[in-house]
Simulated scan of single mutants.
Amino acid sequence: MTLQDIADRIQKGLNGTLFEGSLKFDCGGSGVIVLADNQASTTDQDTDCSIRLSQDNLGKLLTGKLNPMTGVMMGKLKVSGDMSVAMKLGKLLG
């Protein structure tokens, strides 16, 4: 699954849902997915919150196979910036 596929999937999940703030999934050399203005894109930009993780772990996070808190504790994902934006993501995924 490419990052564009993942972004498209997130976009479908956003339809009809208001996501306030901006968030970036930073997958290093694989690229980024940015949630901003109720859009999911693979175009990099500054965001309120950034989550660094592998593309594989991003897929697991979005399919519920990786719990966000467990991921942070195990070092599989690192959150920087506004934590409240990251917390809103949990509601969106749930």
Results as ranks from 00 to 15, higher is better:
G59M: 01
D46R: 13
Q45V: 07
N15M: 06
E20P: 12
L93S: 01
A36R: 12
G94Y: 11
T70F: 06
D5E: 14
D44S: 03
N38A: 07
L62F: 08
F25G: 02
L93Y: 12
R9G: 15
K76D: 09
G21P: 10
V72R: 05
T17V: 09
T42I: 13
Q45C: 12
S80H: 04
L61P: 06
D82Y: 04
A86P: 03
T43I: 11
F25A: 00
S50H: 07
G16M: 06
S80F: 04
G81T: 11
S30H: 15
T2N: 02
T43V: 15
I6C: 10
N67V: 09
M73E: 08
C27N: 01
D26L: 00
M73P: 02
M73V: 11
S54P: 10
L92N: 02
L61S: 01
S80A: 06
M73Y: 04
N38C: 14
S54C: 05
T63C: 13
D5V: 06
T42M: 02
D26W: 02
I51T: 04
D46A: 15
L77W: 00
L77S: 01
N67R: 15
G28T: 00
T47W: 09
V72I: 11
G21K: 08
I6F: 07
L14R: 11
S80Y: 12
T47R: 00
K24D: 10
G59Q: 04
K24P: 05
G75F: 00
K12Y: 10
G29Y: 09
G31T: 12
L89M: 04
P68T: 09
Q55Y: 05
R9T: 13
M74G: 01
I33P: 06
K78G: 00
G71Y: 08
D8W: 03
N57P: 05
S41K: 03
M1G: 13
R52D: 07
G29P: 12
G75I: 13
K65P: 00
L66H: 03
D46N: 11
M87E: 06
K12F: 08
D56M: 14
L93N: 12
K91N: 15
T43L: 09
T43R: 08
N15W: 10
V85N: 01
V79C: 03
T63I: 13
A36P: 06
D5R: 03
V72Y: 13
K78R: 04
G64M: 09
L14T: 15
D46I: 12
K78Y: 03
G29C: 15
T47F: 01
T47G: 00
Q55E: 09
G94N: 14
A40N: 14
N67K: 09
K65V: 13
V85K: 08
G81W: 11
S54T: 13
V85S: 14
L66C: 01
M74D: 10
S54I: 05
N38M: 06
K60D: 08
G13C: 05
G75P: 09
Q4G: 13
N15F: 08
V79A: 07
N67C: 06
N38I: 05
D56K: 08
N57R: 14
